[in-house]
């Protein structure tokens, strides 16, 4: 038992502690000059712009599927009129943020884990340090900031393409017009759904980037270590994100009690 504690629990806790310290450092360094603006922009391009096709396509598909499901359940109550609003509410509050979070942790988390892992094992990170560049600021903070900036934007894109998808499905059934669908969709959404739902994805972005960066920067063992960093990034980031979401949802209910219906 003591052996188990010493060989499993303690290292595990120590690892957790190191991640927390790493995350804290990322948060602190983000607001401390000098700012790596160009590199952050490059990361926004990688994380945000290049995720757009994936997010838009996924959002569109999710919108169609959700619309069909919503129709199936609301039809029973004769509440078809609520389909756009129910879809939008679900998207804005939870589905949009979570789907974007999972997609980004898959695409971007793996990317960051692999890229930083490769840089680590080929000594590029040391090379950065050797040319007097703060590798943490240059590599980690830029990615964390880019993810935190890109996530809410991607979420908004997902929500809108989701609603467009919902409209596609709806107009196929009822021939509803786009503008009236859009207005109906937003008829029940409140600021207290929209703002926390969208902005909480900044937290998701933070978690994804910090986790993947940590695992990448601490990769070891050559090519295999790089692959490991990539897969672990996706898994760990997704799980952490979903767990954090539970806490965030409670927190949002606490701060905006009227959203807890």
């Amino acid at each position: 038992m003591r052996g188990f504690v010493r060989t499993v629990i303690v290292p595990w806790l120590a690892q957790g502690g190191r991640v927390v310290v790493f995350a804290g450092r990322a948060l602190r360094e983000m607001f401390r000059p000098p700012f790596e603006v160009r590199e952050t922009a490059r990361q926004v391009y990688e994380v945000g712009w290049r995720s757009l096709p994936l997010i838009a396509a996924a959002g569109y598909a999710v919108g169609i599927v959700m619309s069909m499901h919503t129709r199936a359940s609301l039809e029973r109550f004769g509440a078809e009129a609520l389909i756009p609003a129910a879809l939008a509410l679900a998207l804005v509050r939870e589905t949009g943020p979570l789907v974007v979070g999972l997609l980004v942790s898959g695409r971007v988390g793996a990317g960051i884990g692999a890229e930083l892992g490769a840089m680590k094992v080929t000594e590029q990170i040391d090379a950065l340090e050797a040319v007097a560049v703060d590798s943490f600021k240059f590599l980690v903070v830029t990615r964390v900031a880019a993810c935190m900036l890109a996530m809410p934007i991607l979420t908004v894109v997902m929500n809108f393409t989701g609603i467009v998808g919902g409209w596609t499905a709806e107009s196929a059934v009822s021939g509803m017009g786009f503008e009236s669908y859009f207005r109906a969709a937003f008829s029940l959404v409140q600021f207290t759904d929209y703002l926390p739902g969208t902005l909480k994805t900044m937290v998701f972005g933070f978690i994804i980037a910090v986790t993947a960066s940590y695992l990448g920067v601490h990769a070891s063992g050559g090519t295999q270590g790089v692959g490991q960093a990539a897969t672990r990034s996706v898994v760990t980031a997704s799980v952490l994100m979903i767990a954090t979401n539970v806490v965030l949802v409670r927190l949002i209910f606490f701060v905006f009690p009227e959203t807890a219906e």
């Binding site: 840089m119 000594e123 590029q124 040391d126 090379a127 040319v131």
Partner: peptide, 17 residues
């Protein structure tokens, strides 16, 4: 500041790829 005065060729070159 010190590092700016030093050039370092890594054994495996360590180019930014």
């Amino acid at each position: 500041a010190v590092r700016q005065r030093i050039g370092f060729l890594f054994q495996n070159a360590a180019l930014f790829d």
